[in-house]
Amino acid sequence: MPDFYALLPAERGDRPGQLLRTQAIAVPELGRQTRAWRIMYVSNDSRGEPIPVTGTVFSTTSMAQPHPTLIVVYCPSFHGLGGQCAPSQQLLTGDEPLEQIREALDRGWTVAVPDGENLGVTGLGPHTFLAARASGHVALDLARATQAIPELAPSHTPRAPIVLWGYGDGGRAAVWGAELAVEYAPDLDLRGVAAGAVVTDPGALVRTQHRGPWAALALAGLIGLSRAYHHLPLRHVLTEDGRSVARHAEQLSAATLLAQYRQPLEHWCERPDPWNDAIWRFVLTRESRSSAGTPAVPVHLYHGTHDPIVPIESGGGLFTEYQRRGIEVSWREYDANHFRTAIDSTPEVADTLASFLRRPPTQNGQLPRP
């Protein structure tokens, strides 16, 4: 059987959400009633250029329904930079956390999990970690592609209600998806968004985490953004040793990155504060806030009070900003660290998403007036 992740020249589409390939798979951990597919579809990168991406879709329905399924696009936290870190691959090896997927499936929802730009498809890496615009595109286009899967696509019915859910870097993707949806995907019936531990300013993350136990995240961010903006000379801040390390690191999982590269980011750079380089300031500013638009759907934000990776001020600042802009937004704090919050929040977040899905459909990206 040909490698699912090897892209054929004839499969390069140009329509966002275009379904290129599907493959039914088995995920025993989710039970016999769950059907699953790996899919390859078209999205857009940070510059608006078409790219092939992959993801996984789960459903507990036994056949195509006479009414549209409820879809939750779940964007996971950072897995790593190498293609083998793609959630669609880790699901088959039993290495992908399933709490959020199970919660959504138990409620009868179809669950779609994006791999992210340059994860999955062979030869395109490394993953563009912290490139938020592309991650928003990938999430929204997965919702489009999911509705095109023949086994899930009902005939002669309205578009499917959709919610976005993400945590960590996935929460960042969900928020950007909400801001981009009005202009980028007005065809989608997006009902709401839930996002936890959202990084609103990647420059602040790099400055606060470039030393200490999470220093490899700063290195991963430099690698990911330099891949997303490959037309800019971003890796010029690295030393010769740094460039060698980057070539190695771009193949690794998050766990291996954190274990192997504990040195401060400056250890691999020509200067002690590479984020203050003029080109890097430009990129970090572009990625710090989408300015793409105002979400037309309700947003639920949540954060752990003892989060050592993404300071609670990051999510709290976004909550305050959304309030100021008149966006319907809610906030929840959990007395836990980054990893515990992701699990403890699951039932409550799913309840919030269920309330969003019960709302009237959106029309051209705008909520109907009461």
Rank of each mutant, 00 (worst) to 15 (best):
P347D: 03
V297H: 02
I327N: 10
T362S: 09
S288N: 08
P308D: 08
E348W: 12
F319I: 09
T305G: 07
D307I: 10
V297Q: 02
T294S: 13
H300P: 00
S314Q: 13
G304H: 01
N337K: 07
E313R: 15
D351Y: 05
Q366F: 10
D344G: 10
T346C: 12
Q366V: 11
L301P: 06
G316C: 08
Y322N: 03
Q363T: 06
W331A: 09
A292C: 01
H338E: 00
F356I: 00
Y302D: 02
H306A: 15
A350F: 11
S314E: 12
Q366P: 00
R289P: 03
T305F: 09
A336N: 07
G365E: 01
D335G: 04
P347M: 03
H338T: 00
T320F: 11
T352V: 15
V349N: 03
P361K: 00
S330A: 08
R359T: 10
S330E: 11
E333V: 13
S291E: 14
T346L: 10
V299A: 00
P295Y: 09
P311N: 04
Q363L: 10
R332M: 13
R340D: 09
Y302N: 01
A354M: 14
R324E: 15
G326P: 03
A342Q: 15
V349R: 02
T341K: 05
N364Q: 12
G317L: 10
N364R: 11
R359M: 11
H306G: 12
L301A: 03
T346G: 09
A292R: 08
L357Q: 00
H300S: 01
H300W: 03
D344F: 15
S290M: 03
F339Q: 14
N337I: 07
G315S: 12
Q363V: 11
R358Q: 10
E348Q: 14
G293D: 01
R325C: 11
E333D: 04
D351C: 07
D351L: 13
S330Y: 12
Y334W: 14
W331V: 04
R324Y: 13
R340E: 14
P311Q: 06
S314L: 05
A296P: 05
S288K: 03
P308R: 12
P360V: 01
R332A: 14
S288T: 01
T352M: 12
D307H: 14
Q323I: 06
P361N: 05
T341S: 06
Q366G: 02
S355A: 11
L357T: 02
P360E: 05
P361Q: 00
G365I: 00
G293R: 03
S314Y: 08
F339A: 15
L357E: 02
